[in-house]
Design a protein around this nucleic acid. Structure first.
Lengths: 211, 211
DNA sequence: ACAAATATCAAACAAGTGTTTTATACATAC
DNA sequence: GTATGTATAAAACACTTGTTTGATATTTGT
């Protein structure tokens, strides 16, 4: 491993992350990646075995970022009431999701959801499951139900779905619903999701007596 | 146009719809479609000009189905209170989305959202925009805000996001959150989204005074 | 300094893509 | 019946894909 090697290797990782996030695994060619990284066409196969090897390594850094966000969002709520923990979790999550200039991580994960590759398992186990389990625990505490109660899981799905919905996307764009990533707007969105969701959780549980 | 012609043409449409829904526009080859339809490789180009022509025609039937669902969901709430109109709209929508055995339509639209083709415009204008505008009007009526109020639009996004979230997907599957499409479960999910959302809408508006 | 391992490069490979061509069957109209 | 427009078929075309090859630098260990 020479210094130059590391440089080429990391340039490939960087270019690959950018392109995979923008257009998905299958739609990006190794030639594009190598051109973007100013490397030879054979570079990907030499350094990562094959295209999927490069993708896996890129995805792992995305997964690590998910875990980090997860930890930060949990930490933000320590010692608070369950409602407030939920609010802070949503806030941190939305800020990371919508507020960072580089949302490569989330775009990668989002792509993986819609066109799974063999690397999906790692995302689910290391990135998504911890998130769902924490939210389930929180909603269970709020409602007094079991974390595995179907009503709890539905609430978690509702919360998670909203958090992802406010990412810029071609449809919202075409509808003129540009959610510009202003700092103020960001807080408003996070506040919206939190308020909307907390009220939703309470309503769903109040509607039917706790089993 | 002989009878045999019509048969081949419609076989191509059928096979294309099935395959495009399952794997998206780019991932399906013309050869696959023609094989599935027991037609020659040149059949697609002969009958539809090119691959995109076939896709456009398939997608148009999906758009028509969206409009039909939209109309039915509106009709279901005639003469009711705004809250009840919203509840019924969500119910109809969720039933169509999750309850039909053949969800080709929604899978096609979903794919188009995540990897847009030149045909996305038609979906947005004819399928999505009417839906958003109706929901905006409804939420505006519930809250007393303008339909173009940012808070109203955020609520609409929250509602729509939840409706789409409960579709079976590889991640929910891997997490063991199998939402089996039972009839009972279907009603529960629709009820959950409606109750959760109506409470959410009221909470979001109560929190900040109406402008 | 020299040999061995490592990294880069241009070129080619094998497989697959959408599309076009050319020829043949088929139906319908005159 | 023959001509005409339509539909199907096999083959080839032009191009792109991920990957491999073999040669040439470059760095490293001694």
């Amino acid at each position: 491993m020479t210094e130059r090697d590391l440089e080429t290797r990391s340039r490939l990782l960087e270019a690959g992350a950018k392109l995979f996030a923008a257009r998905g695994f299958k739609d990006v060619t190794v030639r594009e990646i190598c051109h973007e990284a100013r490397a030879n066409v054979a570079a990907v196969n030499y350094h990562f075995g094959d295209k999927l090897g490069l993708y896996r390594e890129i995805l792992q850094t995305a997964i690590d970022a998910m875990r980090e966000t997860n930890d930060a969002a949990r930490e933000a709520g320590r010692g608070q009431t369950a409602d407030e923990q939920l609010r802070r979790y949503i806030t941190i999550f939305v800020q990371r999701l919508l507020g960072s200039k580089d949302d490569t991580v989330h775009r990668l994960v989002s792509r993986e959801i819609n066109e799974p590759t063999p690397a999906l398992d790692a995302i689910v186990e290391q990135g998504v499951r911890p998130r769902i389990e924490y939210l389930s625990g929180l909603v269970a505490e709020i409602t007094g139900c079991s974390p595995s109660d179907q009503r709890v899981l539905r609430c978690v799905a509702s919360i998670q779905a909203q958090s992802l919905a406010f990412r810029p996307n071609p449809i919202a764009e075409r509808l003129g619903l540009v959610m510009s990533p202003t700092r103020a707007n960001l807080e408003e969105v996070a506040d919206h999701i939190a308020t909307f969701s907390i009220a939703g959780v309470h309503a769903v549980i109040d509607r039917v007596p706790i089993s």
